[in-house]
């Protein structure tokens, strides 16, 4: 009994320590910012524009690239093909490489000298130093979250249900939209939310491609480098609160949309 208590206490102690490690710096940052600083920061048009840009760029990256990646996730969950392991590994690559390196690599593909860059310029899209570039950089580093979650979601749908639907005369496309996707919806949505959240916080890849317009992580860094901690902290605090609010809202919405899995 005593031993049991000791084990429990040790577990609680170490778990608490880890949670504290995550929460304490954030809480410290939020609490050290005074109400007047919050108000001032919210009234700062540079900050609010930057937050809007960050939120919508990441949203754009998620909607365009995340949704385009869903068929690939299904393919990885359902089909066997040569070098599938390699493809799975490639998908995780953006997570493991330094993001500034990812930015440099991306620049080689979308800068004005490349055909993609030139094609973009012709239709009025400028990647380098433009919102389109921010979207591409955010998508590059955050796509693995959407693909991996959706792949696991599709893999968890019993294949038998898809086969039963085919047997009832449905086309493979109809089976995907009426059976596979609705049943994997929870994982797909949570992957998209994670992708969006990861996109918001991207700094390394974005700064290489577009210093301006300034996304909030770059704005925080710029204020820190130019004016010091006291100027960067309120921006960081506001950005954390906005991200948390939107993140919680998205989570709640994606859970609510779902019923009876069984």
């Amino acid at each position: 009994m005593l031993k049991d208590w000791r084990t429990k206490l040790t577990l609680i102690f170490f778990s608490g320590l880890i949670i504290l490690f995550i929460v304490a710096p954030l809480l410290g940052l939020l609490l050290r910012t005074s109400p007047s600083e919050y108000i001032q920061t919210l009234q700062d048009s540079e900050v609010s524009q930057s937050i809007r840009l960050t939120l919508f760029s990441s949203m754009g990256a998620t909607l365009i690239f995340g949704i385009l990646a869903i068929p690939l996730a299904w393919l990885l969950a359902r089909k066997h093909f040569p070098m599938k392991g390699l493809v799975n590994g490639l998908i995780d690559l953006p997570v493991v490489i330094p993001h500034s390196a990812a930015g440099i690599a991306l620049l080689g593909v979308i800068s004005r000298g490349t055909w993609i860059g030139q094609a973009g310029e012709q239709v009025g899209i400028s990647f380098v130093g433009g919102t389109a570039g921010i979207v591409v950089a955010m998508a590059f580093v955050s796509l693995p979250f959407a693909i991996n979650a959706a792949r696991d979601g599709f893999a968890a749908v019993p294949e038998k249900l898809e086969k039963a639907a085919l047997n009832l005369g449905a086309s493979p496309v109809r089976v995907f939209f009426t059976i596979s996707l609705p049943l994997a919806k929870r994982s797909v949505l949570s992957g998209l939310v994670m992708m969006w959240a990861r996109g918001l916080s991207e700094f390394g890849a974005v700064i290489i491609i577009a210093y301006h317009p300034m996304v909030t992580p770059i704005l925080i860094w710029e204020r820190f480098a130019s004016f010091g901690l006291s100027y960067a902290r309120p921006v960081a605090a506001v950005f954390i609160l906005v991200c948390l609010a939107v993140f919680v809202l998205m989570r709640v919405l994606s859970q609510k949309n779902y019923h009876v899995r069984n």
Binding site: P158, K160, L161, K163, A164, A165, L166, N167, L168, R261
Partner: peptide, 27 residues
């Protein structure tokens, strides 16, 4: 599979869990 006029009822039924019974039948 979808064109074969042979209807299979699985041992574990394989009903679509996210659809009500009438939608399952109408599928």
């Amino acid at each position: 599979i979808q064109k074969r006029p042979l209807g299979l009822v699985y041992q574990d039924m394989a009903l679509f869990p996210h659809m009500k019974v009438h939608k399952n039948i109408a599928f």
